[in-house]
Write a protein that binds this DNA or RNA. Structure first.
Lengths: 137, 137
DNA sequence: TTGATCTCTCCAGCCCACTAGAGAGTCAAG
DNA sequence: CTTGACTCTCTAGTGGGCTGGAGAGATCAA
């Protein structure tokens, strides 16, 4: 089989990206990846930009986005022009959420530092009615 | 039943924290929460600091920690003194991971901003062999 | 005492994101 | 033309984190 210059079979995509074949097929099924078509025998053909997509997926996923959310963003990307109002709205919300998440990670960071130093991170005998950890940190 | 001054039944914990009863029982089963004991009839009694714990759990979870990881941190906290070497090691690793995660969130933030502006976030026709999105951003 | 309203345990099922395996077809090299 | 590696689809199972329901007991107000 002569694979066209820029196309890759799923196996080499898997090998180069470190993502299992099964997972790649699963992502394609969900619509996160697109193939350039198939060989006559039905083998998937991927173009080289699949790696950028896989990388985006991996990264976004580690940040807590679901595969469906990621698909939405990839679809916006694929559209190539300004997203419609509804999508802009959802993007803006996500932005806010991401900001909050960054802040919370910074809090967690400090808490882990305290644990390392042998300090408590939660009040041991608190009579607080509203959780103090948020204000406290 | 006369509940002692500082103790709460699971229902009011659920109501005040917004976390379902089932989930609270589940957390206790996993060892994330401890009760102050039970009533004669077997009802769980929680002290007021359960809210701080629940809050910590919720927050940590949103940041991508598993319940088992969270339990580990709570156990360190409960111990109250300097964690042993092995645990310090794991804490330090987690700290590094958190730092990386913060950086990646900042990248994602910029990417979402670009999507909002109608710009592409992935190369459309890239011949890159190594994913460009990381360097690109 | 008798309801209404908790709460208990136990077991089953759901959703997400895979992952394993079976059985069959495809491809390049020799 | 065969061999061996690769790929296909399909079905089913896994693990984490809940969530629902059954059936039974506990608590409390009237």
């Amino acid at each position: 089989m002569v694979v066209q210059e820029e196309t890759k079979l799923i196996g080499s995509v898997a090998k180069e990206s470190g993502i299992p074949i099964k997972t790649i097929r699963y992502y394609e099924e969900l619509g996160l990846l697109k193939t350039m078509g198939r060989t006559e025998g039905g083998f998937r053909l991927f173009s080289a930009d699949v790696f950028a997509r896989l990388n985006f997926i991996k990264r976004a996923q580690k940040l807590g986005l679901s595969l469906l959310e990621i698909r939405e963003f990839l679809e916006i990307h694929d559209q190539g022009d300004l997203p419609c109002d509804r999508v802009q709205e959802s993007l803006r919300n996500k932005l806010i959420e991401v900001d909050r998440q960054i802040q919370e990670l910074q809090i967690l960071r400090r808490e882990l530092g305290r644990l390392l130093a042998g300090e408590a991170i939660l009040p041991q005998n608190s009579a607080a009615t509203i959780c103090p950890i948020i204000e406290q940190v």
